Computed example of a mutant assay.
Amino acid sequence: MKALFHDLGLIEKFRTGRQRFELDGADEARAFLTARGIPADRARLISEGIALHTTPEIPHPMAPEVALVTAGVDLDVLGIGYDTLPPETREAVAAAHPSPTSSAASPTPSTPAWPTAPGPPSAM
């Protein structure tokens, strides 16, 4: 669920303009889950993972459900841990999920697959 909702706050429909996009996505995910009977403690873990997914290191010692989304973002966007993956794994992932910014180049830490997300509304 965190992977599905983690950038939802970037979509205008879900962006409140009162807080960072991560918090907008976290709030929407929590509301979505609790409205469907997901227990509040599980919805909170998902919400926390979304809220913190762009904050390197802080979520790492937290619950695995919180830390996992950040670890994915660290690798995907920042390239943290990229060199620890075997080359054949990197190549298989790049072949299965080519970068939307370049069909010829394999994604590397210096060529992120996605554009940088905007900061909080006050920073724009």
Rank of each mutant, 00 (worst) to 15 (best):
L85Q: 06
P107N: 04
P120Q: 02
E28T: 14
S103M: 03
Q19A: 11
T111E: 10
T111G: 04
R18V: 00
L52D: 01
P87K: 00
P112W: 07
T34L: 11
V69T: 11
P109E: 03
E48K: 15
A96T: 09
A31H: 10
T34D: 02
P121W: 04
F5A: 12
D27H: 08
L45G: 00
D27F: 04
I46M: 09
G9Q: 07
A123M: 11
T16D: 05
A26E: 07
V93C: 09
S122L: 01
A3Q: 08
M1A: 12
A3W: 14
E22G: 08
P39F: 02
A95I: 00
A31N: 12
V77T: 06
R90L: 15
A43P: 06
T116W: 10
G17M: 06
G17C: 07
A67M: 10
P120G: 01
K13Q: 13
G37H: 11
I80M: 08
V77K: 09
L8E: 09
H53R: 06
T111L: 05
A94Q: 13
G49S: 08
P64A: 07
P107E: 12
F14Q: 03
T108S: 13
R36V: 07
L68T: 13
R90H: 03
V69D: 06
T34P: 05
T108R: 04
V69R: 07
D76P: 02
G37V: 10
G37T: 10
L10W: 09
P112N: 08
I11W: 05
E88D: 13
T54W: 03
W114E: 11
L78D: 12
L4H: 11
P87Y: 00
A51E: 12
A3D: 14
A29F: 01
V69M: 13
E88Q: 10
G49L: 05
P100M: 00
A67V: 00
Q19E: 09
E48W: 04
D24W: 06
A51V: 02
T55Y: 06
E88R: 00
P39Y: 12
R42L: 09
D24E: 10
T34G: 02
A29P: 01
T101A: 03
S99M: 07
S99K: 12
P39T: 06
P64F: 08
P87Q: 04
A96G: 14
T111W: 02
H6A: 04
T116Y: 08
T111P: 03
E28Y: 14
A26S: 14
M62E: 14
H6G: 02
A117W: 13
V77C: 05
A113P: 00
L33E: 03
R30W: 13
E12A: 15
V66S: 05
G25L: 09
A71S: 11
T16Q: 02
T89C: 04
E65V: 04
I50R: 08
P109V: 00
H6R: 06
D41M: 08
L78K: 08
M62G: 03
E12F: 00
G79F: 05
R15K: 15
P87G: 01
G17D: 04
A94C: 12
A117P: 10
D41V: 04
V69F: 07
M124I: 10
D7A: 01
I50P: 01
T116A: 15
F21Y: 13
K2E: 04
